[in-house]
Amino acid sequence: MQLQTQTRPKVISVSVLEDRIDAATAIQFKEKMRDATKDSPARVVLDLARVQFLDSSGLGAIVAVKKLLGPDRMLELSGLTPTVEKVFRLTRMDSIFTIHPSLEVAVSHAATA
C-alpha cells in the first residue's frame, strides 16, 4: 500500500498510489493513514483518483480514518472514480464527506478558505 503525502501550510494531501483498497489491504491502509496524518494540519485531503476498486472493508477503513482524525480535523476526499463513487453513494457515506472533483480543486479550495 503506497501513499504519497504532500504537506502545505493549512492542508495535507495524501494520494493513494494503488488501484484497490479492499479486504486484503484495508488494515494496512488505515495504519499508513494514521502515520501520514500524525500532527497534520486541520484539513486532510485523501485523493482517490488512482483507485479503481473500493469494497466495504476499504470504505470502513476510510470512515475509520475520519474518526481517527477526531473532531478538530477534517477528512475530505477527491478524485473519486465511477465505481468508487457508487460505493459511497449506495451506502450514503457521500453525505458525511466533502468530496472534491480533483486534488487540484480540493487544494485551491483549501488555500482560499
Binding site: 469494497d55 466495504s56 470504505l59 470502513g60 477503513a61 470512515v63 475509520a64 475520519k66 474518526k67 460505493v87 449506495l90 451506502t91 457515506m93 458525511i96
Partner: peptide, 12 residues
C-alpha cells in the same frame, strides 16, 4: 464516534 465502520457489505 458513532459513524459505522462496517455493515456496508450486505447493503451493497
Amino acid at each position: 464516534d458513532d459513524l459505522p465502520e462496517g455493515g456496508f457489505g450486505w447493503h451493497l
